[in-house]
Design a protein around this nucleic acid. Structure first.
Lengths: 128, 128
DNA sequence: ATATGTTACGTTATAATATAACATAACAAA
DNA sequence: TTTGTTATGTTATATTATAACGTAACATAT
């Protein structure tokens, strides 16, 4: 069943959904101060939960966060993104054979694959 | 020709080379204070340069840094790692066909590939 | 209904990571 | 020997993230 979000979690999620670009935690905070969110903790706690349920992903190389556009996202742990260096938009890639590829790649080093994070940088369709 | 390193750069690089695990910038600083390095700036500046020439890579999801073991590393920009969740060691993957794979993957979204960062988490041979 | 456990919340403080800004030094090339 | 470039040292500050504490809300089991 669907996990029901708390008020703070909804507010943080909406802030991310309304943004074209990934947002940093403090940028989120600034956006939602008018809604009564006053401290980084509240944002980070909401983010933690949202990430846990797959509703939000973190872009590690940007220290920022995006709302996941996929209903019931599988990517709780493994994530793959295309990041446009012009407009900063992030597109999530859902390719099941990517994990397969990485599992094989790992095996070649006798490494037991668990999860991955892939960030591809370049120029998106719209900016090209 | 080989880029000759400055004293500070050598000190920072050695600290990373002497470590089995990736080190954060402040951890590096702590390690080399006895050698006269006194401020984060000095560490970050050295890191910037070392990364630029490919002698050091940043592990984004750990906010930390490793010395590259490959002579004249091609991975100035694109990097791929296996990160052991048990011993924290990082193994760099050099698979030329990875970039090809990512280029193709990008093309499917009309995205023009430029660089990538891949971080695979799991358990390494030694810890398995 | 009430005790108990769990999860969320609010708040203050602080840790950890990274950069800005400014003055100076070292050094190569014109 | 001036000029440009790169590196340095230093102080201050920005940015990102967590610790720690007390309280509130709420479910559920007695």
């Amino acid at each position: 069943m669907e996990p029901s979000l708390t008020n703070n979690q909804k507010i943080v999620l909406q802030a991310l959904e309304n943004s074209e670009q990934p947002l940093g935690a403090y940028s989120i905070l600034f956006n939602i101060e008018k809604k009564g969110i006053k401290s980084p903790q509240q944002v980070y706690r909401a983010l933690d939960k949202l990430i846990e349920i797959g509703a939000v992903h973190k872009i590690e190389s940007l220290n920022s966060y995006i709302a996941c556009k996929h209903k019931d996202c599988k990517a709780r742990e493994s994530t793959s993104f295309l990041i446009c260096q012009v407009c900063q938009k992030v597109y999530e890639v859902l390719e099941s054979d990517l994990s397969d590829k990485f599992i094989k790649l790992s095996q070649e080093s006798n490494f037991k694959y668990s999860t991955h994070n892939l960030e591809i940088f370049g120029i998106c369709d719209l900016c090209n």
